[in-house]
């Protein structure tokens, strides 16, 4: 079950159970996720991979009927401890969603949103700096530098998704969660996002849910396979794809590729 990590894991999950009302969605998930790398969650629809992803920044707290049991540690700190404010946690665990969701504001205000609410910049020059760095890091700066005051909703789908990534980067997170970040994009935009993910890997712990086996193989160093709410197998991507231990993993992977 242990993903190969050179040092202490960035995210450590032990015996995580998640319930929606009386229905159990995740069963006893144990997983270590290393820093500065990309980890993919794969599995059929409804297998619980997105649910687990949303446990890591406590987004499930916003769903009334959802209940999480077990321990998830970020850098050794229990994120479900009583004294942890989920609002603060989410500043260090950013998230990118399936469908690009820029706010109906200008490109600049979209990226500046997080720094503003967290008071990261003391003056406008500093804020300009954060916006520029974030957009550059997200590979969007060259395309939008001369129209920062135009609405973010006017960009193309791929640009919107990179804008949203820039928005997440702007609050200086340590972990970035991505919930099928390319499923609403065309192949060219997808390639750009994958390239970006590969670049970001040097600075962040990236955890990505994907339905595309090929994408998991291309961009991630570690892969975890979920099935029916259970974590079946996790390990280096190469091993999962070429020599899985579990027959279910084997079936899922080969079934897809025929």
């Amino acid at each position: 079950m242990q993903a190969k990590a050179s040092s202490a894991p960035k995210v450590r999950a032990r015996n995580v159970n998640v319930f929606y009302g009386s229905k159990q969605a995740l069963f006893d998930v144990n997983l270590d996720i290393p820093d500065c790398s990309v980890t993919s969650f794969i599995g059929p629809s409804g297998c619980g991979k997105s649910t687990f992803l949303r446990c890591i920044n406590r987004m499930n707290d916003t769903i009334d009927i959802c209940r999480v049991e077990g321990d998830i540690h970020l850098d050794g700190l229990d994120i479900y401890a009583r004294d942890v404010d989920p609002v603060i946690l989410r500043a260090s665990v950013g998230m990118v969603f399936q469908k690009p969701n820029p706010f109906p504001k200008s490109i600049y205000d979209n990226v500046a949103y997080g720094p503003r609410i967290h008071g990261l910049a003391s003056n406008t020059d500093e804020l300009d700096g954060i916006v520029e760095t974030s957009l550059k890091r997200a590979g969007l700066w060259d395309e939008v530098a001369d129209r920062l005051d135009e609405p973010g909703t006017g960009l193309s789908g791929g640009q919107q998704q990179r804008l949203v990534i820039a928005r997440a980067i702007a609050v200086r997170p340590e972990v970035i969660l991505m919930d099928e970040p390319c499923s609403a994009l065309d192949p060219i935009a997808t390639a750009k996002i994958e390239e970006l993910i590969d670049d970001l890997r040097a600075h962040y712990c990236i955890i990505m849910v994907t339905h595309s086996m090929a994408q998991a193989a291309r961009v991630s160093q570690n892969t975890a396979f979920f099935h029916l709410g259970k974590l079946v197998e996790a390990g280096p991507t190469e091993q999962i794809f070429t020599n899985p231990n579990d027959t279910r993993t084997q079936d899922y992977i080969t079934g897809r590729f025929g």
Binding site: N57, M59, T62, V87, I88, L89, R90, A91, S92, G94, M95, F97, K99, N101, P102, F103, P104, K105, Y113, G114, I117, H118, V164, R167, A168, V171, L177
Partner: peptide
């Protein structure tokens, strides 16, 4: 809902989300 989720995921509180995202939208 995606807009609210986006805001919460940035570490905004509910009041900040209402004031800065939901209300302007």
């Amino acid at each position: 809902q995606a807009l609210r989720d986006g805001s919460y995921a940035m570490g905004a509180t509910q009041a900040e989300t209402v004031r800065n995202v939901v209300f302007p939208a």
